[in-house]
């Protein structure tokens, strides 16, 4: 156990998508835990299962997807354990948006174009019993939007989504997600759809907010810069599996998994110098027919005998630094 006081614990999670082309094994035995109060990051390429993992935490997997097996425990308070997989639909609905709130990638797509921002905030509160009615919620919406640093919140309450800029829409979405004072905030690439300047604002604001509101943040991103700036603990995902998990400094100082190293080399470091960025050869595997053994082995420069036969276990190399790679598992220590 990494955490003394975890807020969420996931054990051996499997998610499949039953498509016409075949069964996509999107999440393949993922286990991790998030400590209360930290910022936990999931990084990886598009399609590696970051979003699916985050949505599986409140069973937000829609048909044709299905959580195949796994255990998910949520601790709203220290010592109080809720088995997410055993909850009824109604019980899990009450947790979504109340204890565990989400921010999705594209704020324009998160809002219903036909309703005002105030209505969105109000309904989020009203259906969780935070306010008695939507009417009352609309009155309180300005307050919520002010918390999300929305400029001129009073008039924004009456605005429709198309009347706001992307950054303001994301503030509105953040406002909605915070309206019920959640304990865990899951931000799924919250700034990917926004301008760079707005990105910085939103991220700084999230950081500030986290301290003020005593939030736990699960941040999903493919931006290594953001990871360095925001995260306490990082999990690197590849093709539906966690391949490495470490505290953020440790990961940047001493990346172990060949995939993590590849990711690091693909990030530009020295502006102005004429260096070519390295890329990881090959492409993300088709998860209908995932490669046997380690899913990264076809692209791995260090692959050797067991890699294409047996899946490497996620083992702890140093304190809190786990990696799933035969390079380290073989001797049970450093290479």
């Amino acid at each position: 156990m990494r955490c003394k006081d975890p807020i969420i614990v996931v054990k051996d999670l499997y998610v499949n998508f039953y498509t016409y082309a075949g069964v996509v094994k999107a999440i393949n035995g993922v286990s991790f835990e998030i400590c209360r109060g930290e910022t936990y990051c999931l990084v990886g390429e598009t399609g590696c299962g970051k979003s699916v993992t985050s949505r599986a935490l409140t069973r937000l997997i829609k048909s044709p997807g299905r959580i195949e097996k796994g255990e998910i425990y949520f601790y709203p308070e220290p010592g109080k354990k809720i088995d997410i997989m055993k909850l009824s639909d109604e019980e899990i609905r009450k947790i979504r948006g109340y204890d565990i709130a989400y921010i999705f990638q594209d704020p324009s797509a998160s809002l219903d174009p036909l309703y005002t921002i105030g209505y969105h905030v109000a309904e989020t509160m009203a259906f969780h019993g935070v306010v008695q009615s939507i009417k009352e919620g609309i009155k309180k919406a300005a307050q919520v939007l002010r918390l999300a640093k929305m400029p001129d919140p009073e008039s924004r309450v009456r605005a429709f989504p198309h009347e706001l800029s992307g950054g303001m829409k994301q503030r509105a979405v953040i406002g909605m997600s915070l309206a019920n004072r959640p304990k865990l905030l899951i931000a799924d690439e919250p700034t990917t759809a926004l301008d760079v300047t707005i990105q910085a604002q939103i991220m700084n604001f999230l950081k500030e907010l986290k301290e003020k509101e005593n939030l736990t943040l699960l941040l999903i991103t493919h931006n290594m810069g953001l990871v360095a700036e925001m995260c306490d603990t990082v999990a690197v995902m590849y093709a539906g599996e966690i391949v490495e998990e470490a505290p953020v400094e440790e990961l940047f100082k001493n990346p172990l998994h060949p995939y993590t190293r590849g990711l690091m080399r693909a990030v530009p470091k020295h502006v102005g110098k004429n260096v070519t960025l390295e890329s990881i050869p090959g492409t993300v595997p088709n998860l209908i027919f995932p490669p046997p053994g380690c899913r990264f082995h076809p692209r791995c420069p260090y692959r050797f005998d067991p890699c294409d036969k047996k899946r490497p276990p996620l083992i702890e190399i140093e304190k809190n630094h786990k990696v799933a790679c035969w390079l380290y598992a073989k001797e049970g220590g450093k290479r």
């Binding site: 409140t58 979504r96 948006g97 999705f104 219903d112 174009p113 036909l114 309703y115 259906f127 909605m176």
Partner: peptide, 25 residues
């Protein structure tokens, strides 16, 4: 199938409220 329906689910709104949004759209 719109994305805002996903977000309605993620906010834990009840089914009826979701249909209300869907129908209006």
């Amino acid at each position: 199938g719109s994305d805002f329906v996903d977000y309605i689910d993620a906010r834990g709104l009840p089914r009826n409220q979701m249909y209300r949004h869907v129908l209006k759209n």
